[in-house]
Simulated assay, not measured.
Amino acid sequence: MEQPIRFGIMGCAAIARKLSRAIKLSSNATIVAVGSRSPDKADGFIKDNGLPENTKVHASYESLLDDPDVDAVYVPLPTSLHLQWAVAAAVKGKHILLEKPAALCVADLDQILDACEANNVQFMDGTVWMHHPRAAKMHDLIQDPHLFGQLKMVNSIASFHAKPEFLHDNIRVRPNLDGLGALGDLGWYCIRFILWTADYELPRTAVAFPNPVKNEAGVLLSCGASLHWENGTVATFHCSFLAHRTFQATAVGSKGTLTLSDFVNPLEEKSAGFIFASQSGFKELITGWKPLPSNHVIPTEIPQEACMISEFSRLVGDIRDGGAKPEKKWASISRKNQVVMDAVRDSIDKGFKPVQIVG
Rank of each mutant, 00 (worst) to 15 (best):
E2V: 11
Q3M: 09
R6D: 05
F7M: 08
G8C: 02
M10W: 04
G11M: 06
G11A: 09
A13V: 06
R17V: 12
K18G: 12
R21T: 09
K24H: 05
K24R: 13
S26A: 15
S26N: 01
A29V: 00
I31Y: 03
A33P: 02
A33I: 02
A42T: 03
D43N: 14
K47L: 12
D48M: 09
N49I: 02
G50T: 02
P52E: 04
E53K: 14
V57H: 03
S60P: 14
Y61R: 10
E62Y: 11
P68S: 07
V70T: 07
V73S: 01
V75H: 02
P78I: 01
S80D: 10
H82T: 06
H82I: 02
A89W: 03
I96L: 15
I96M: 07
E99Y: 08
E99V: 07
K100I: 12
A103R: 05
L104K: 03
D108Q: 07
D110V: 09
D110I: 10
I112E: 00
L113C: 05
D114V: 12
D114Y: 02
V121H: 08
V121R: 02
Q122F: 00
D125G: 06
T127K: 00
M130V: 05
M130N: 02
R134F: 00
M138N: 01
Q143F: 09
D144C: 00
L151V: 05
K152H: 06
I157V: 12
F160A: 13
K163I: 15
P164G: 12
E165A: 08
F166E: 00
N170V: 11
N170K: 11
R172S: 09
V173Q: 14
P175R: 02
L180V: 04
G184R: 07
L186G: 01
Y189E: 05
R192H: 14
D199C: 12
R204D: 15
A206V: 12
A208P: 11
P212N: 02
V213M: 03
K214A: 09
K214Y: 07
E216P: 04
G218C: 05
C223I: 03
L227E: 00
H228F: 05
T233W: 02
T236P: 01
F237S: 07
F237L: 09
H238F: 15
L242T: 10
L242M: 09
T246V: 03
F247G: 08
T250F: 09
A251L: 04
A251Q: 01
V252L: 13
V252E: 01
V252W: 00
G253I: 06
K255E: 14
T257Q: 15
T259W: 14
L260W: 08
D262L: 08
N265R: 15
P266S: 11
A272H: 14
F274K: 06
I275L: 13
A277F: 10
T287N: 08
K290M: 12
K290C: 04
H296C: 07
P303S: 09
M308Y: 08
S310Q: 13
F312I: 03
R314F: 05
D318T: 11
I319N: 03
R320W: 05
D321K: 08
K325T: 10
K329S: 09
S332M: 08
R335P: 04
N337A: 07
M341P: 03
D342G: 04
A343D: 06
I348Q: 02
F352N: 14
K353D: 15
P354N: 12
Q356H: 15
I357P: 13
V358T: 15
G359Q: 06
